[in-house]
Design a protein around this nucleic acid. Sequence first.
DNA 1: AGATACAAATGATATGATCTTTGAGTGGAA
DNA 2: TTCCACTCAAAGATCATATCATTTGTATCT
Lengths: 257, 257
Amino acid sequence: MEPSSPEVAAAPTLPAESGLHARVLDHLGTAICGGELAPGSVLNIDELVDRYAVSRSVVREVLRVLASIGFIEARRRVGVMIRPASAWNVFDPQVIRWRLASAGRMAQLRSITELRTAVEPHAAYLAASRIGRDEASDLVGLAAKMWAAGEAGDEERFLHLDIEFHRLVLLASGNEMFVRLQELVAEVLTGRHKHHLMPHHPHEQALQMHADVAQAIQRRDGERARQAMVRLMEQAFDEMKSLWEQTGAPDREATTR
Amino acid sequence: MEPSSPEVAAAPTLPAESGLHARVLDHLGTAICGGELAPGSVLNIDELVDRYAVSRSVVREVLRVLASIGFIEARRRVGVMIRPASAWNVFDPQVIRWRLASAGRMAQLRSITELRTAVEPHAAYLAASRIGRDEASDLVGLAAKMWAAGEAGDEERFLHLDIEFHRLVLLASGNEMFVRLQELVAEVLTGRHKHHLMPHHPHEQALQMHADVAQAIQRRDGERARQAMVRLMEQAFDEMKSLWEQTGAPDREATTR
DNA sequence: AGATACAAATGATATGATCTTTGAGTGGAA
DNA sequence: TTCCACTCAAAGATCATATCATTTGTATCT
């Protein structure tokens, strides 16, 4: 069973969001994430009904969803108030997508990368004691394929294998919350790729580290798996550091307290 | 400015959920988390309108929210299908609350504790380089107050100080996503307290470790801060381990793939 | 048997009315 | 003047009903 061929065709973005609800939601979410709707400013329902030329049903449903992710707060006699970024559910995949598409893209990439740095080593550690035999074999196989793709200079394939590798580690951690971070990792890796932050021939070290992680997990050596993953993260972090340094380091993000 | 007196009165749970929307949402969310509505089963809007004796608007808005957190999927000509736990946004605070109130409470506590184990050490590391002078002082002060409360055997106060301590570390990490985990940590600590998992006189070690973390952060020694926090997490993890071992270890949770 | 067309079920959207809450103004009393 | 109680209207919350659009099961036709 090839664990790398069919699954890698994941959904990158859902471009043609059909349905009025999705369209309005996406538009408003983007506007809020992009800062076009500043925190504190107020809207009202009828205004939105006019602006988007949809019914109140649609607008209200959208507002409920936005409220549930902390973007807005509706108050009678006042209207719909935009809430500050500190109130957002920054773990909501939709929010992540919007932020990655907005001006705060770099800040978002940075946050997620730091999160990865924290989580993935522990995930590797846990995976070492929880992974199944077949999964472990797949993992080692993936590392091998990554090596091959790296040698061949096939960036596209390398990216997909990389995503799949980290997905499998998080999955094998047996922690539902870690698993859910897989999509964030995929976004970061893809973003890194799009910004040409990966050397055309991946560092030999990185290839070796992936292999180390896989092997340590298969041998059920959690401590070694963690350390290998730490090294991997350190390298990934360094590679990305140049990104947000060149884009004007947003060292203090939404500390709007 | 006392960082521990006014803030500690956070919202534990919002019991009297006013408004039809909140009531129906809470009821359905609880039912899904509790497994009373099994994955795969289908509802339809009119049925819910009858069951809850509310209007379609209310039901539809609730369903949109549930869909946005991955609980359901609405399909024409079919109805509203309950999705498996693997699709849930397990980072949504509302989901956490529902799960902590359901039969999956232990599994949820376990997941969050593992997440803490991964994140907090790195948060401490980052905090060491990003914390402000005043915050650092507050942190050291908190550790001192924890020591006092531990000595005095004032469990209640100790809990609040503990929550505040970890909140401050996460806040000082400068990572918006880490900050958002603060509420989860608070839930875990409170849960641990409610289940009498904390020794009446907190371990001397734990007190010392909190002090170590605070001091290392203040001295901007990230590596030492991380290591101290790792030890803290290890101890916390051990204390909780007995909990989910006695409750029938749910080692494999929703691996409904 | 297989393709095609029809029809029913169900969510999606639209519309208008009514209820409820709450901010702001208004007036009187201390 | 200052402050409290009262009133009113604005805006969301809820309700009720109707129509549209899509999906899918079924019957019909070849």
